[in-house]
Design a protein around this nucleic acid. Structure first.
Lengths: 276, 276
DNA sequence: TTGCTCCTCACGTCACGTGAGGTGGC
DNA sequence: TTGCTCCTCACGTCACGTGAGGTGGC
């Protein structure tokens, strides 16, 4: 019979751990003195303590350890738990390696540029969103070509939504599409309408569209859209440097559009997939 | 200005997280209504939220995130934190890969043997221990050769300790060493004596020795030492299967030695190093 | 009698999730 | 007026570490 201190030394665990396992019913002392509460352990209890420690080392929770030791599992059940643990460990390693890659990317970025990037690129899941939109063609992707088209388009959109009795359900979104003569500009606003509410005739009429859910690399930009080029390029560089690939033109989400264009806040959402 | 719900949706975080970050002072709402307590956020606060999320994704704690965002760190300090995080991630990956290897070893063991091993092998750090010991030569490693030598030796040891006024400070330990004519058997008992207490003359005299700290693969065995071979072999197989290499003959620690030898409890400690 | 070991609470850790119970704005 | 959103506690999670305050055995 060993005192708790001696038994803890034998098993290379703390006294507190033995008390904890006692409280959980995971490893009860062979004997407890009624008057003093002193715990005594037998040498023959060491194998069980060792099993507890070994299973814990594999990353099982104490609850799982208890199940494994006390519930007299069939071999196939034990296999199942081990396979589950293996899958968890593999996932954990993969996640840590991804983090590691991002930390490395930051370190090399700091070394090449000597500073912390001011804007954060973040990969997010963007859910599907139902929008009402108007379309028009612009001659190119430059701000000078887009600006004069998209401004009035959003103006009309507001009027049309009003006329249809629709209320915007979130910040306005612009996106683009190449067409033979230039660029198709989409000016859209989230709505909660059910599908068949809106007329949908010619190309310049109001249309109800579901923008699909995407995984997107995003960056938030403060300032006039005229000067957003640098940020969009930063986003593109980040996508390349972090092992993603762009799969389309970015959506622009207008989070704040006060009169002073320098105070605009826009989020660029570039759809991406992980590189193989 | 966005309500907490809208801002949470924009940032793809939960409302609870925004409240938590508010409580920590990590991200205060742009405005709080005095009467209702309602929080309001500005679009321009989204970059900060994104930074928080991005740093959190790298595995920093919220406390570290706060330091990084608010304490205006020098570039070199930021580098330092990132390098530290990198080291932690690398250590975490290495630890997980080790666990994974052990889980794999168990799975393949189950497949080959169809059952869970009854005895657990555990790698432990065994600290340095000061012992008083007696030595004698046996003709070989077989139980039949060791038994008749070691039994009386431990008997003498107890008498000598008594005579010297030394009290055992832990379970007795045996270990072995090859010599030209056979095996040198060491029968030892931990003591707390300072070095120059014990006479140390001829080879059969009581000697004070420091057994060095070792990393050891250990297994606990219940039963007579005559039948311990299978367990020692199991230990050897485990060592090989789990990427370790033995570096000497095992120590035997006698945890319980009641009169009935079938109730003995012995721990075998085989010194090991990790294979390259 | 003085140390040493042991005892039982009970707080703290970390980043929230999840109710409970109640209130404000359309 | 009915939903919907928001609010503030406060417990629970996980495996103990770390005191506080007190007692038993040599």
């Amino acid at each position: 019979m060993f005192s708790i201190g001696d038994f803890a030394r034998l098993g290379r665990v703390s006294i507190r751990m033995l008390r904890h396992y006692d409280a959980l019913g995971l490893l009860r002392p062979a004997h407890v003195d009624e008057r003093s509460g002193y715990r005594s352990y037998q040498a023959a209890q060491l194998p069980r303590l060792n099993r507890i420690v070994a299973l814990k080392d594999l990353g099982f929770t104490l609850h799982q350890v208890q199940t494994i030791l006390d519930e007299d599992l069939a071999v196939s059940q034990l296999q199942g738990m081990l396979r589950l643990r293996r899958a968890e460990l593999e996932a954990g390693v993969a996640a840590d390696l991804e983090r590691l890659a991002r930390v490395e990317a930051r370190l090399s970025l700091i070394e090449s540029e000597g500073l912390m990037p001011i804007n954060e690129v973040l990969v997010k899941q963007v859910p599907r969103v139902r929008v009402a939109e108007l379309r028009a063609v612009a001659s190119g992707y430059e701000p000078e070509a887009i600006g004069p088209v998209i401004g009035p388009l959003f103006g009309q959109l507001c009027q049309r939504l009003d006329a249809e009795g629709l209320t915007p359900a979130g910040p306005q979104i612009a996106y683009y599409e190449p067409v033979p003569n230039g660029v198709m500009v989409h000016a859209s606003s989230p709505v909660t309408a059910d599908p068949p509410v809106v007329s949908n005739g010619s190309d310049d009429d109001l249309a109800l569209v579901d923008l699909p859910a995407i995984e997107a690399a995003t960056i938030v930009y403060r300032g006039s859209m005229d000067k957003a080029d640098a940020v969009v390029q930063e986003l593109a560089r980040w996508i390349e440097a972090n092992g993603y690939r762009g799969t389309g033109h970015a959506r622009e989400v207008y989070l704040a559009c006060p009169p002073d264009h320098d105070l605009w806040v826009t989020e660029f959402q570039e759809p991406v997939v992980k590189d193989a």
